[in-house]
Design a protein around this nucleic acid. Structure first.
Length: 776
DNA sequence: TTACCTCGAGCTCA
DNA sequence: CTCGAGGTAA
């Protein structure tokens, strides 16, 4: 069977040739063959590998990420998510960070940190496999970014291959791509010479360059990079500190900031911060703060991370740049829900890398608090990275004719009364769908991305159609085809545009219920809640008909939200609009009209059964629980072995029990108690509370006193956990107290505990106790 | 909120 | 060539 040997040989040859051409391309920027020929080699190899899976090889070039011409901007999943950093703006916050860490680590002496400047560029993750750069990706949402290999590869500072021995099989190196001041000046000079666009700041120039499609343009741009961390890594050397890791990166040939320093203790960090702040102007590139990381890796690991940022690092931001400018006017914008927002129109001023001409003033209280008047000279900054903010008024420069801001009593758009609900900061226009602003905003929301997502119906076009009276409410969108002629007559609307738009609208007649519910723009119903409403009710019509108590059974729906939903559907205008959307020749059609959630149906049954039995006021959660796990309601009371799966559920069962108690349903109450006891829970009538009586809990029967603020939970939460574990929480320390849990800033209870010789533990100690009990 | 890139399509002039 | 839309980043 010579054929097989031939195949093996051909595959080896293909792999060799592809690797050779990869080297020419990647390392020497000097491809020898045309793309098409290269692709032919690649596809032949791919098809051979597909036919002979037993000959596949993980090291084959077909398995390499990035390939030769990875698809520009296609999504890339980071092997390890790219986290963001927690920010500190004041010294206090930095000190609090240090304190938090030392408490958590139980480390009284000072901590070693690694400090480095926080560059103002864009974050990029480089992926090296077998020492070769195979892929570069932007940060994206932290999980998934965009493939920018084609342009990042052209950055001189980014090595195509890592040097040295003991390299990892693969590694993600994280860093910041930026442009120096000098590079920026030269780039703009060149742009001007060529009559091309001038960039407003180095950051945008860098970001723009990285997202150039043509790598040759990127190559002309003075992009630079500093690396500061490692994501996923497989193999390679061990390192025990952040500083060591950076040394290692440098050793591999990756660019690392020369400003990085190891710092002992938080005072050294502050000194470092002030030093860099003073030298900020003299640095070759823009920085917007300093990053501090716990130097020891094992401590980093012990500290772990929160949802979005590691606990062991923080960015100490420089104060935002501020400028003064003149407030020309205050205008009032009316939003979708009628909220009237004051907006400052400012004399344009360049601050923090961008031109600011508008800034929200939030509400009337804010205006009065800052005593902002029209004509005032104000201090403006770009706070928290992006949103412009009027910091304060320069009182000395107030002109004699400065005007106080008068909040309109009538809506500036429709003239309806503007009211302010007691307890709310916002003013609202009462015009509802009679108000053009609210109509237009409603439409904008309806077609927006998370909603029906009608492409081609962007802000500009929508506003045009609105003014022409073609589209005043959502149902009009689906009648646009009736004005096809008029559409064609419009400026910049040819046959193609019209076809595309009408086809898109036609497509979006079919949609999902969650999108549609979100699209309606019911106050406090966002994308997430819309999803759960769709799931729970199964059919839109049921949601529409749902009475208040049913709405309240939905997770995350409380009285306010339930009321808002009810009000929306009760409104006659809304009802008529919905009828229009669902009637006619081609109504809105749901692709996912399904049956309601079984648990929810059971909840309803359960609720009505309890009601029939004369039990009133059963908590929604309890009803939901019972319904979910005991679909045959009656069996619950017959089968005490039925499982209750966790403490929350047990607690809810207790709620049922307390209702049963109050309603005098003795028989059912007894059954409930048996059920709870079976799970090791003792329900006490007097407290309507519950706790575990299990013997294996170290907390069982112990008495706790809590004092001081806890970092991770409130005292109430801690008390809840202790009771759940069978312990007891009291308010004052006595000889009978077993443990005193001391948080930060403890009161006199800690002293008393010391005097009485009661065991003192901290939050970590308490957690340890609780964990032990959860077993395992 | 602003700045930037890409894409499709219309507009304009040769 | 120019515009609007759509997307991304900070």
């Amino acid at each position: 069977m010579n054929q097989r040997a031939d195949v093996v040989e051909r595959m080896a040859e293909l792999r060799r040739r592809i690797e050779y051409h990869n080297r020419r391309y990647y390392e020497h920027d000097d491809p020898e063959i045309a793309d098409a020929d290269y692709d032919r080699l690649m596809s032949e190899l791919q098809s051979l590998e597909a036919q002979h899976p037993e000959l596949a090889d993980p090291d084959s070039p077909t398995q390499q990420v990035g390939g030769r011409r990875s698809e520009a901007f296609s999504p890339v999943k980071h092997l390890q998510p790219m986290l963001s950093l927690d920010n500190a703006f004041e010294e206090d916050e930095l000190r609090a960070f240090d304190r938090r860490l030392r408490d958590r680590l139980g480390h009284e002496a000072q901590l070693d940190y690694h400090g480095e400047p926080k560059l103002d560029g864009l974050a990029v993750s480089l992926r090296y496999e077998n020492s070769r750069l195979v892929q570069a990706a932007t940060r994206g949402d932290g999980e998934t970014g965009e493939d920018v290999t084609h342009s990042v590869r052209t950055i001189a500072a980014v090595p195509d291959r890592l040097r040295g021995q003991d390299l990892p099989r693969h590694v993600e190196i994280r860093g910041e791509v930026f442009i120096t001041h000098e590079g920026f000046r030269e780039l703009n000079a060149a742009q001007r010479r060529r009559g091309e666009k001038i960039f407003v700041n180095p950051r945008n120039a860098a970001a723009g360059s990285v997202r150039q499609l043509d790598p040759e343009i990127a190559r002309q741009r003075p992009l630079d990079m500093f690396c500061y961390g490692i994501g996923a890594m497989n193999g390679g050397p061990n390192f025990t500190t952040q500083s060591q890791m950076l040394d290692m990166l440098q050793h591999w040939g990756a660019p690392v900031s020369p400003e990085g320093q190891r710092l002992s203790g938080i005072e050294a960090c502050l000194a470092y911060y002030h030093d860099l702040l003073a030298r900020r102007e003299k640095l070759a590139y823009d920085i917007d703060g300093v990053v501090f990381k716990v130097d020891r890796r094992d401590w980093q690991q012990r500290l772990g991370q929160l949802s979005r940022a590691p606990r062991w690092a923080i960015a100490h931001k420089f104060p935002a740049q501020e400028k003064t400018t003149v407030l020309r006017e205050v205008q009032f914008q009316v939003g979708r829900t009628g909220a009237v927002t004051p907006v400052a129109r400012l004399e344009p001023v360049f601050v923090g890398g961008a031109t600011v001409s508008n800034a929200t003033l939030h509400n009337l209280d804010e205006i009065r608090r800052k005593d902002i008047r029209v004509g005032d000279t104000v201090i403006v900054r770009r706070a928290g990275d992006v949103i412009p903010e009027v910091v304060k008024v320069v009182a000395e420069q107030r002109p004699a004719d400065a005007r106080e801001v008068e909040f309109p009593e009538q809506c500036p758009v429709c003239g309806s009364a503007v009211v302010r609900e007691p307890g709310e900061a916002v003013h609202r226009c009462t015009g509802r769908m009679n108000c053009a602003a609210q109509q237009l905003e409603t439409l904008r929301h309806f077609v927006s991305r998370g909603a029906l997502d009608i492409e081609g119906l962007g802000e500009k076009n929508l506003a045009r159609f609105f003014e022409l009276d073609w589209v005043r409410r959502p149902s009009d969108i689906f009648r646009l085809h009736e004005c096809e002629e008029d559409l064609l007559a419009l400026e910049r609307f040819g046959q193609k545009s019209v076809d595309n738009l009408l086809e898109e609208i036609e497509r979006k007649r079919n949609t999902q219920q969650a999108r549609f519910i979100f699209a309606l723009g019911i106050p406090s119903v966002g994308a997430t809640l819309a999803k759960s409403l769709a799931r729970v009710f199964g059919r839109f019509e049921r949601l529409r008909q749902a009475p208040l108590p049913l709405l309240l059974t939905v997770p995350d729906v409380g009285p306010a939200v339930a009321g808002a939903i009810r009000d929306f559907f009760m409104d006659e205008g809304n009802a008529a609009e919905l009828d229009r959307l669902f009637s006619g020749e081609r109504p809105i059609v749901f692709e996912d009209a399904g049956e309601p959630d079984v648990a929810w149906v059971k909840t309803l049954e359960m609720t009505s059964l309890l009601t029939a039995l004369g039990v009133r006021g059963v908590a929604a959660g309890a009803a939901e629980l019972v319904a979910r796990y005991h679909p045959d309601f009656a069996s619950l009371w017959r089968d005490p072995a039925a499982s209750v799966r966790d403490e929350r559920e047990a607690q809810r069962l207790c709620e049922v029990a307390s209702v049963l108690e109050s309603q005098g349903c003795r028989e059912m109450l007894d059954a409930t108690e048996v059920l709870l006891r079976d799970w090791g829970i003792h329900w006490t009538q007097d407290r309507s509370a519950w706790h575990e009586t299990g013997q294996d809990s170290p907390l069982a029967g112990k008495t706790f006193v809590l004092t001081g603020a806890l970092a991770e939970m409130t005292r109430e939460e801690a008390a809840g956990s202790i009771e759940a574990a069978g312990g007891k929480v009291t308010s004052s320390v006595s000889k009978k107290t077993d443990f005193v849990v001391v948080g930060s800033d403890p009161g006199s209870k800690a002293d008393k505990a010391r005097k009485l010789g009661v065991t003192i533990i901290d939050e970590a100690g308490l957690k340890a106790l609780l964990d032990k009990r959860n077993g395992n």
